[in-house]
Design a protein around this nucleic acid. Structure first.
Length: 260
DNA sequence: ATGCCGTTTCGTAAACGA
C-alpha cells in the first residue's frame, strides 16, 4: 500500500496538477493539505472519476485538509482534539481496511507560527502539544498509525539548504523542533529518515527569489509512523519532479510504501 | 528588505503563507 501527503496550495488552482499526478503515481491513499476550499466546493467528481473515495474538512479561504482513498474511508473524524474553540481546519483522520489488516491515517496541516513575536507562534506550540497528546492516545490501539502532512517544522539543519537563514523562523525554533522530537520519542518514526540519512532532501521551495532554481529548499512535509507501521515500511519517495511542472504547488508529494 | 511569488476573497487591496 502506498500512502502520500501533499500540500497542494489550493485544490481549485491545482486540480489539473492533482489529477495528472494521481494518474501518474496512483497512490492508494492521499493526504492533502491547504485545499483552501469549503467542502461543497471541493472537486470531488474529478478524483472520484480516478477511482478515489473522498473525505474533506475545509473552510473558506485558507487551511483545509482532505483524504483520498481507493478503498473506503471508515470512521472519518475531523478536528484535532484538545481545543473546542480552534476553528482552523487542520486535521482529518480515517481508517482504511485491506484484506490483511487496517491502517489509521491522518492528514494534518500544522500551523506555520510566523511571525514568532505574535500570538501565531504560541498557537503553533499549543497545537503541537495537542498533537502529542492525541498521537500518544492513538498508540493504545493495535492498528498501525500514519500521521502524514505539512508539519511546518524543519527537524534538523540537514533539512534546509541554508539553515542559517531560518534561525528566526517559527519552522526552525528550538520549541518547534523539540515538540517534533517529542513525537519521535513517543515512538513515531520519520519515514524518510528511516530509509535515507543524507542531506539535500527537500519538500518545499518558496515561489519567491528563485528558490526552486537555486535549490533553496526545506524538508517540512513528513510521514510519521507508529511502531506497527514502521515495521512494515518498504520505501519512501519524494516526488520532486512535480515542482518543475507548470503552475506548481510550492510543496511536492511524499509517498511511503507500507506492506499492508 | 514592510521586498521577491502565489492563492483566495461578498476582490481590484489585503490576508495568509513559509
Amino acid at each position: 500500500m502506498r500512502i502520500a501527503t501533499w500540500n497542494i496550495n489550493g485544490v481549485k488552482a491545482r486540480l489539473e496538477n492533482l489529477t495528472r499526478w494521481l494518474e501518474e503515481s496512483g497512490p492508494d491513499i492521499v493526504c492533502l493539505q491547504e485545499i483552501k476550499s469549503v467542502d461543497e466546493a471541493f472537486p470531488g467528481e474529478a478524483v472520484e472519476r480516478l477511482g478515489y473515495n473522498v473525505a474533506t474538512h475545509g473552510q473558506k479561504g485558507f487551511n483545509g485538509v482532505a483524504l483520498l482513498s481507493k478503498r473506503p474511508l471508515e470512521d472519518v473524524t475531523c478536528r484535532l482534539p484538545g481545543d473546542e474553540a480552534d476553528e482552523h481546519a487542520r486535521w482529518i483522520e480515517a481508517t482504511v481496511s485491506t484484506e490483511t489488516g487496517a491502517v489509521r491515517v491522518a492528514s494534518l496541516y500544522l500551523p506555520n507560527g510566523n511571525p514568532i513575536d505574535t500570538d501565531k507562534f504560541p498557537y503553533k506550540l499549543a497545537w503541537m502539544d495537542r498533537l502529542l497528546a492525541h498521537a500518544e492516545g492513538l498508540l493504545a490501539t493495535d492498528t498501525p498509525i500514519v500521521l502524514a502532512g505539512d508539519y511546518n517544522v524543519i527537524p534538523e539543519p540537514a533539512d534546509a539548504r541554508f539553515p542559517d537563514r531560518w534561525t528566526d523562523d517559527a519552522l526552525f525554533q528550538p520549541e518547534s523542533r523539540q515538540r517534533y522530537r517529542a513525537l519521535v520519542n513517543l515512538g513515531y518514526c520519520d519515514a524518510l529518515r528511516a530509509v535515507d540519512a543524507s542531506d539535500g532532501i527537500y519538500t518545499f521551495w518558496d515561489y519567491q527569489a528563485g528558490a526552486w532554481q537555486k535549490n533553496n529548499g526545506i524538508r517540512i512535509d513528513h510521514v510519521m509512523l507508529s511502531p506497527g507501521a514502521a515495521d512494515r515500511l518498504e520505501g519512501v519517495s519524494v516526488e520532486k519532479h512535480t515542482r518543475a511542472w507548470g503552475k506548481p504547488s510550492d510543496h511536492v508529494p511524499v509517498v511511503v510504501s507500507i506492506d499492508l
